[in-house]
Write a protein that binds this DNA or RNA. Structure first.
Lengths: 211, 211
DNA sequence: GCTATTATGTTGGCATTGCTTACATTAAAG
DNA sequence: CTTTAATGTAAGCAATGCCAACATAATAGC
């Protein structure tokens, strides 16, 4: 039995502290090598204590991801409040991912694809923000049905895919080293070109003029 | 001691078979739960046999990813041989990722960011193919120096980011379910719009020169 | 205030896994 | 034919996820 004479039996904020420690740990060691036991030790608590707050390791990772979405939404909301348009959103998105690469990766990992939607309330919020911003800039209606809704879904997927891919390329350092380093921030701002329904693009769908 | 009277002591093609089995395993159970021991058992070989061919688990995953790049390059080359232009490349890229989602994810995972370049010879090949195709379509020179090289790097990053993000959005099922399913193939074909230097984009770039 | 209930944390333990060391078998080189 | 290198095996350690039984503290009902 350890000497816990100076420590409280109940931590009191274990759940929150585990999330905090987890965020640091994944950025330092990578997501794959995150260990609940090690985290418990860091928090000065027994090896199975985390299981009182999370059913299993995957559930903890989902909670971590959700925290990430909360932080991202917070950032995006701040930009929106400052009157930022779509390019500013792109910049903020890129900045968030660069500042928390492992967290961003986790937020878009395989795990989340099958996670229960109820656990990812914050995820929906941040995506709604992005979607609304894109819709406003492009003059689309968010809840539109039929053809209009389908067209908006396409434009949203194009814009989101663009910024998401750009960000992943950067944080995973996948861009070939034998080429000059791209201007990531500038490219992120170009999000506008993808969200707004450009005449050229729409015509191309029908007639495909280039090449 | 097991009865191996009918089995050869030496498997003979263990390395290749592990790669084969590994590809199936990650698509079935996910990358995280891939176990070298389990794979060894599947191959009918002792638990530590794989370590004769791969220093550790991560090295095996890198080898798997490299095999993925080889397959992708093979596909892209086939499309090129058939005279396919950039939209066809986009389609092929999307098709490959959809057919092997876990493999594609692995090819762009955190692990690879720090992998020794020598282990990823095939990766460079497939990217070179994509880069050449984009350069030809956009009228760029691949090895250009200075401003031209930097501009090409930006256009390449934009195009690659676009298709990569689109693909990831799809295979990770991240696109919100409350929107209509996007036309993924059609969006992949739009790769042209990102690789070709569009007048509007270039003017915008000039108006906001660098940073 | 006292007690019952619930939330939270601990201890011990099992199975799985990655990986190391020492040894066995076979193929290939000389 | 002998030697050597390549390939596979056996045994075992440490770390981890997770379960079951128990301990402690906070809280609610009376």
């Amino acid at each position: 039995m350890k000497d816990r004479s100076l420590e409280r039996y109940h931590h009191g904020e274990l759940k929150e502290e585990l999330i905090r420690l987890g965020r640091v740990a994944i950025e330092r060691d990578g997501i794959a090598s995150l260990s609940l036991r090690a985290l418990a030790a860091e928090a000065g608590v027994s090896k199975t204590a985390p299981y009182r707050h999370f059913p299993d390791r995957d559930a903890f990772l989902v909670a971590l991801a959700n925290e990430g979405f909360r932080l991202l939404a917070q950032e995006l909301e701040r930009v929106l409040a400052e009157g930022g348009a779509v390019p500013a959103m792109g910049r903020a998105y890129m900045a968030f991912a660069s500042a928390h690469p492992a967290l961003y990766r986790l937020m878009h990992s395989e795990l989340l694809a099958n996670a229960a939607p109820a656990q990812l309330t914050e995820a929906r919020r941040s995506m709604q923000l992005l979607g609304e911003s894109l819709a406003r800039a492009g003059g689309w209606k968010l809840g539109a049905d039929g053809e209009a809704g389908r067209r908006f879904a396409n434009e949203a997927a194009a814009a989101w895919g663009y910024i998401h891919g750009l960000v992943m390329l950067r944080i995973d350092r996948l861009f070939p080293a034998w080429l000059p380093e791209p201007d990531w921030e500038g490219l992120a701002e170009r999000l506008t070109a993808h969200s707004a329904p450009r005449a050229s693009t729409r015509r191309k769908k029908a007639a495909r003029p280039t090449h």
